[in-house]
Design a protein around this nucleic acid. Sequence first.
DNA 1: CTGTTAGCGCCTTCAA
DNA 2: TTGAAGGCGCTAACAG
Lengths: 342, 342
Amino acid sequence: MPVTLVEVAARAGVSPATVSRVLNGNYPVAESTRQRVEKAVRELDYVVNAHARALLHATSGIVGVVLNDASDPFFAGIARGIQGAAAETSRLSVICNSEGDAEQEFAFLDLLRGHRADAVILVGAAPEDEEYRAAATTRAKGMLTTGTRMVLCGRPSPGEDAPGHVVEIDNEGGSAAITRHLVELGHRRIAYVTGPDGRTTTTARLAGFRRALADFGVEADENLVVHGDFSRQAGREAVERLLAAGRDFTAVLAANDLVAAGAVSALRAAGRSVPDDVSVAGYDNLPTAVDVWPNLTTVHVPLEEIGRKAIELAFGPADPQTVVTIPTAVVVRDSTAAPAAG
Amino acid sequence: MPVTLVEVAARAGVSPATVSRVLNGNYPVAESTRQRVEKAVRELDYVVNAHARALLHATSGIVGVVLNDASDPFFAGIARGIQGAAAETSRLSVICNSEGDAEQEFAFLDLLRGHRADAVILVGAAPEDEEYRAAATTRAKGMLTTGTRMVLCGRPSPGEDAPGHVVEIDNEGGSAAITRHLVELGHRRIAYVTGPDGRTTTTARLAGFRRALADFGVEADENLVVHGDFSRQAGREAVERLLAAGRDFTAVLAANDLVAAGAVSALRAAGRSVPDDVSVAGYDNLPTAVDVWPNLTTVHVPLEEIGRKAIELAFGPADPQTVVTIPTAVVVRDSTAAPAAG
DNA sequence: CTGTTAGCGCCTTCAA
DNA sequence: TTGAAGGCGCTAACAG
């Protein structure tokens, strides 16, 4: 059995209330008393029971982070920012991997609600179907009754009436910008490898790509749009399929850097040089972008900053339903160049 | 204010005790009563207060994971395994980034202890000084009094008398094996870029390197050992320093894959081809090992499996102080080859 | 400045 | 099968 406050009180020869006061430092306590209590605490190796405390305060010092997969560098980056900012207000972050499964996501939400999390941050793209949207809105409302603040991070709000702050990434803008970069280099036949179907991020990035092409009056060839997910494997397979089908393209724009890395390796395996034969661009500016050779041209997304922003919103003023859009920026490296003449 | 069990009871027209019984399903309850209670729970969107429950049970369903940095792929891999295995027993994982700082690590330990974590898993290399060892042993004993199980993961036990299970990685063996691979290819002048000084993992990997050289009767040149940390940056700088000093070497063995990736890029920048001019090998077999070109020869460490093992030990039979050593295996890819003749 | 008292929300006897 | 009562460990009034 762990040591309790009462035992500390007994050893120090004071009342439990006094021990509590010493521990919290909210009320005046005589110096000599304080010393005796602190001594007892040390001798007994006492640690306050966070649950007993949470029971009184209806707060827990816990921040829930629900994401697809913490080992994915995109999520890891954001989680890192959240963790850092949360720790600064001495709150614990609880990271929950939902594996992209809505059921699991909701299960974690309930768990975190049960733990009276101070805030829950949902990170990453969301499914786009109406059913999910309705369920998410209901959940969001439920969180309020438990006093748990909710922040969406990297996904839009499920609806006007859903409470909670939002940190959005300018996916469409970033995607348009990097497409523009390719077009300005002279590329016209650009292949696009998407993220997983039916997710907000996938849709926004693809939309940016199409918008930029349209702006330049470049006709989009739907045969050059290949569906994938956010993995290296998807990038490899997508390029292999394109090549096998004999498609003609001078550049590949990938939904993220992992996909781009896969694309590069498939191109190399097929004997195509990057960027001399084919340019490749990614998205997110993950650490791995500079491991790939040639180093990837990509869109920088300030992941840690996004995480910190989420915490800021979570514990900022309660009332407004803030939406912050994080800007992105094209980073030109070595994987893109003008297409070969001809 | 969140809904409480009492309110549910009132709405269902039963006593709080009955609601509790329905919720936990431990005692017989009439079917009709159960239905009414479940209806009330749904209508009120009730979620049990995990703290109140934890107060009774002296358990929380929380597993603490303390590591350097969750965005580092090595830690991310292990954390993923822990998370998965913990979730299977419906426990929440709390991931805490200590940034390699012993103070912070201990602070998290206290926090987790306060939350009555069911188990705490310390992941990654530990400092090697005596002071840390003593402090860690004391902490480990303290955890016991709170009923928190402790597992060390990727680090040795701080001492014979320290309680807790251990999942060790065979760092020395793996390092010796990959060194052997290089020597057998014909390399004699092998540079070694270490991890951060004074950490168990760094020491073990370096020891394996030296042992393998000694086994082959190859004389180790201390000028070829460069100290770094586990980052790309360190790999780059180490190779630059080696090159600047005009050292003669035909292979670089890196403390991990990130360091190896950095080494490769520095060599390329200096116009040395990998593996034609210089072979490079890494450690850990991180996902990024196949983004690097040429793909890295490395030592596979089954990160997720290690994480799962840690949970298994944490919640397995209480008594024995188990030590499990996870074997490693050399993975030969494209970054190593026989040295150029001459 | 310090002790006493009354719960926070839930579960677990003990009775009925 | 159900209800009433006590207490888990702590803190916030309220006295003193």
